[in-house]
């Protein structure tokens, strides 16, 4: 594999030239200049120790210091915004799971009441998770619209689009399974209606709703089944697919906005004439 070219470092990250009379006098001027403080040297050697064993710096440079086309704008941040909405959901979800009990005989609702009324900052964390879920759905649709209207799904980025569509479906599945968990009247009846909509699919619909409910009726394990899907199965899939999505974005580079005309190399034009 060819060595990656050194990235164009921003001015603030470039090593400062040595002042006259400073340094060890060999004058080769490499990156270690100016880091003579022992604390700074300890940090550098720790980072070097990790990098020597993992070669992480190459990957980080590949990920963060890549070239982007002219004309990128705030619309290009919608994907990252969606990812941060997901991270917020993941973190708040972990803390909600510390109190939540998926107990259909009444424990689920009581545990939600405890989170809302008693637990320190519980109402705040639950609110973040509840409203954040809507934010994530809105952002994922805006991100999809940006990709569609900018034509960013075209060759060679079709796989990125397909993975994104799967992520959209998984996000919808997250919303559906998460809606039941507060286990109040609205959650219960919305899930009854949702499962029955599933059941209207011909041939496999009846069996699909049996699978979702774990039986022909809303039963003892329906809630814990939804809970396990919501907090174990779907997040794992989403994290894995976000990783694949990001890898493809970095590998292929992001597309220029459609209003920028491509400028052919003047040398190429001359040879063609």
């Amino acid at each position: 594999m060819p060595k990656l070219p050194a990235p164009p470092l921003p001015k603030s990250l470039k090593p400062k030239p040595k002042r006259p009379g400073e340094g060890n006098g060999n004058g080769n001027g490499n990156g270690a200049v100016g880091l003579s403080h022992p604390v700074a040297e300890a940090g550098v050697s720790a980072v070097d120790w990790i990098d020597e064993r993992t070669s992480l710096s190459g990957g980080i440079r590949w990920m963060l210091f890549r070239k982007v086309p002219r004309g990128v704008n705030w619309f290009y941040t919608l994907g990252s915004a969606t990812m941060f909405a997901f991270l917020s959901q993941a973190v708040t979800g972990v803390f909600l799971a510390m109190y939540y009990r998926p107990d259909a005989t009444g424990g689920a609702y009581e545990s939600m009441r405890y989170i809302t009324d008693q637990a320190f900052l519980g109402q705040f964390v639950r609110g973040m998770h509840k409203w954040g879920s809507s934010v994530m759905v809105i952002l994922i649709f805006l991100h999809m619209a940006r990709t569609f209207f900018f034509g960013a799904y075209k060759y060679p980025r079709e796989m990125t689009w397909i993975i994104g569509v799967v992520l959209l479906i998984l996000t919808m599945a997250m919303s559906f399974t998460g809606y039941l968990l507060p286990f109040d009247q609205r959650a219960y009846w919305a899930t009854i209606v949702g499962v029955n909509i599933n059941g209207t699919g011909p041939f496999i619909g009846p069996y699909l709703s049996d699978f979702l409910r774990a039986g022909p009726e809303f039963g003892a394990t329906t809630l814990s089944r939804f809970y396990a899907i919501h907090m174990l199965l779907l997040p794992g899939l989403i994290i894995a697919l976000i990783g694949a999505h990001l890898w493809l974005i970095t590998k292929l580079g992001i597309s220029a906005p459609p209003w920028l005309k491509g400028e052919p190399d003047p040398e190429l034009e001359q040879t063609e004439v």
Binding site: G205, P206, S209, P216
Partner: peptide, 22 residues
């Protein structure tokens, strides 16, 4: 017993077959 939303007239009884679980 079928789930709600599944018609049983005409072709419906074939589109929404009986389940093993009822």
């Amino acid at each position: 017993a079928r789930d709600p939303g599944q018609p049983l007239d005409g072709i419906g009884q074939y589109l929404y077959p009986a389940r093993f679980s009822t």
